[in-house]
Computed example of a mutant assay.
Amino acid sequence: MEDLVGLLRIRVKRGMNLVSRDSQSSDPFVVVTMGSQEVYDKDTFTSHDKMGDAEIDIRPFLEIQAMGLQDLPDGTEVKRVKPSTDNCLAQESRIAFSNGKIVQDMVLKLRNVESGEVEIQIEWISVP
């Protein structure tokens, strides 16, 4: 896996049953932290806006990506990752071949909050 050079694209598809922290409306946001890097939307937020957190384990995804699978039929499921104490998956997650790429769809259960789930998709983008 050390030879992988590229970008990890994370698409936030939707949030479900998110906690409302403001009295009139709520503007949820996502912060992605990887090592010391943080990426988030351009909103301003404060510590009282905390709407939960979740961790993902990208190792299964990177292991499949490193296999160099190509020319699989579109929609081919390569692996399933089950929810466990090591991840925040709310349900099984599929790693599949889609439109010429390996992608993983996940529904993450938010921690440290009353309720909420976030649906995301990760995809590897190779950098030549």
Rank of each mutant, 00 (worst) to 15 (best):
M1Q: 10
M1T: 13
M1E: 13
M1W: 10
M1Y: 08
M1R: 12
E2F: 11
E2Q: 12
E2V: 13
V5M: 10
L7A: 12
L8W: 00
R11H: 13
V12C: 03
V12P: 00
R14E: 15
R14G: 10
N17M: 08
N17C: 06
N17G: 08
S20W: 13
D22L: 09
D22T: 08
S26E: 13
D27E: 14
V30Q: 00
V32L: 12
M34N: 05
M34F: 11
G35F: 01
S36Q: 14
Q37G: 07
Y40R: 15
D41A: 14
K42E: 13
K42Q: 14
T46Q: 09
S47W: 08
H48F: 13
D49F: 05
G52D: 05
A54K: 06
E55V: 12
R59M: 10
P60M: 02
P60K: 01
P60T: 02
P60D: 03
L62I: 05
L62G: 02
Q65S: 08
Q65W: 08
L69C: 02
L69A: 11
L72I: 01
P73L: 03
P73R: 08
D74M: 05
D74G: 05
T76Y: 02
R80S: 15
R80A: 13
R80Q: 13
V81G: 02
P83D: 05
D86Y: 14
D86I: 11
C88T: 10
A90T: 02
Q91W: 03
Q91L: 05
R94E: 08
I95H: 01
A96E: 15
N99S: 14
N99D: 14
G100K: 07
G100C: 02
G100Y: 06
I102D: 00
D105M: 06
D105K: 12
L108P: 04
L108D: 00
E114C: 07
E114M: 09
E117Y: 11
E119S: 08
E119T: 10
Q121M: 14
I122V: 13
I122Q: 06
E123K: 08
W124E: 06
S126A: 14
V127Y: 11
